[in-house]
Design a protein around this nucleic acid. Structure first.
Length: 113
DNA sequence: TTTATGGCTGTCA
DNA sequence: ATGACAGCCATAA
């Protein structure tokens, strides 16, 4: 009975195009909660791997893999993103300016190769 | 009911 | 520019 339904978050996350990423704050902001960035992360952490939610497309504002509690998942997300076509740099961070999803419609910036 | 933590973000030094 | 700290808010005990 929270104001922020996980289903809503899942819908936005699932709405992220392949090869594109989004920040927690961006998703929260899209739902109308610019301060619920963490709650978005919690919603993703609360879901299970059985969910059809591409949680691996969600990264922090730094464009890096968010520090989760479970071990090994960071590598998993990195591998999944690489499979999506996202390239990581030597510091395991991606170009948000190139891969960040624009829900406004124009979700193309020039992240091609 | 309150206290503590947590897949974050933003500001201050 | 990086490094550290506090704030926001929901879930768990």
């Amino acid at each position: 009975m929270n104001v922020l339904n996980h289903q809503q978050i899942y819908r936005v996350v699932a709405d992220i195009p392949k090869g594109r990423v989004a920040t927690y704050g961006q998703i929260a902001s899209r739902l109308g909660y610019p301060r619920h960035a963490r709650q978005v992360g919690y919603a993703l952490a609360a879901l299970t791997d059985e969910q059809a939610v591409p949680w691996h497309r969600v990264v922090n504002a730094r464009g890096e893999i968010s520090t989760r509690s479970q071990p090994g998942y960071a590598e998993l997300q990195k591998l999944l993103l690489e499979d999506e076509g996202v390239i990581f740099d030597e510091h395991d961070c991606i170009s948000l300016q190139a891969y960040q999803w624009q829900p406004d419609g124009e979700q193309k910036i020039g992240a091609r190769m």
